[in-house]
């Protein structure tokens, strides 16, 4: 008998019962219905609530009136923060007028040398000020991970109230979860030394969220 059979056998013997059809039905209906647990009250203003929570978790938030304004906003932010005026972006953002804003933006996955990574986001969650990122060929995971500055361009209409809402959106728009779903809530941090919070551990030092309607 292999380890799998032994472990499962011990569990079966300990619980020593056959599942009735009704019990099996409950299990499959639980999976099919995937009921929600107790939820926080839904905020009146999703965007305001998202902003407030994101700032609390040390993300910077800017708002653009339209997508075309994003490069100019980002250029000003990078300049004021004394950060390099170049970086890499997701293919879906390649068409924005980066050059006109004085930015050199390459559309490719990030490498260790890139200091600024610009991404979109699948959606965002107001409850915790969190971005939801789905990995894929057009949405490389490294862009939000390797550079010291992560910039996410987000359509405010894609802000949902809770993580449960985000799962529903994913179930509606994707046939299955991608290889990696990453929820990002601010810059990476550690409190391992003397329980003192320090921003910028192994991931980005800063996260800038630019809200811009698509």
């Amino acid at each position: 008998m292999n380890a799998r059979d032994k472990i499962l056998g011990r569990i079966r013997n300990a619980q020593a019962r056959q599942r009735t059809p009704a019990q099996v039905e409950t299990i499959s209906s639980h999976l099919a219905q995937h009921p929600r647990g107790p939820l926080p009250p839904s905020p009146d203003d999703l965007v305001a609530s998202f902003r407030e929570r994101a700032i609390k978790l040390s993300s910077d938030v800017l708002e653009a009136k339209e997508r075309m304004e994003v490069p100019a906003l980002l250029a000003r932010y990078l300049d004021e923060s004394k950060l390099p005026m170049r970086g890499v972006c997701w293919p879906s953002l390649a068409e924005l007028p980066w050059n006109a804003a004085g930015l050199e933006m390459q559309s490719r996955p990030a490498t260790n040398q890139d200091l600024v990574g610009v991404t979109g986001a699948f959606c965002a969650i107001a409850e915790t000020g969190t971005l939801m990122m789905l990995s894929g060929a057009e949405t490389p995971a490294t862009t939000s991970l390797l550079p010291e500055t992560h910039v996410a361009v987000l359509d405010p209409r894609r802000i949902v109230a809770t993580m449960e809402d985000a799962w529903d959106l994913m179930r509606m728009e994707c046939k299955q979860p991608p290889r990696a779903v990453n929820f990002i809530s601010g810059p990476s941090r550690t409190a391992d030394i003397e329980q003192t919070v320090t921003l910028g551990a192994h991931g980005p030092y800063r996260v800038l969220l630019i809200l811009a309607p698509f």
């Binding site: 929570r53 978790l57 996955p109 915790t128 969190t130 990995s135 894929g136 060929a137 490389p140 995971a141 490294t142 299955q176 979860p177 991608p178 290889r179 990696a180 779903v181 990453n182 929820f183 990002i184 809530s185 601010g186 810059p187 990476s188 941090r189 409190a191 991931g203």
Partner: peptide, 23 residues
């Protein structure tokens, strides 16, 4: 740790697709 959420919550399913650049 007294955090509303950790910085990262990662849900990992399966291996990389052929077209993926990472994973």
């Amino acid at each position: 740790t007294g955090q509303s959420i950790t910085n990262y919550v990662s849900v990992l399913t399966g291996t990389k697709d052929n077209a993926d650049h990472d994973g």
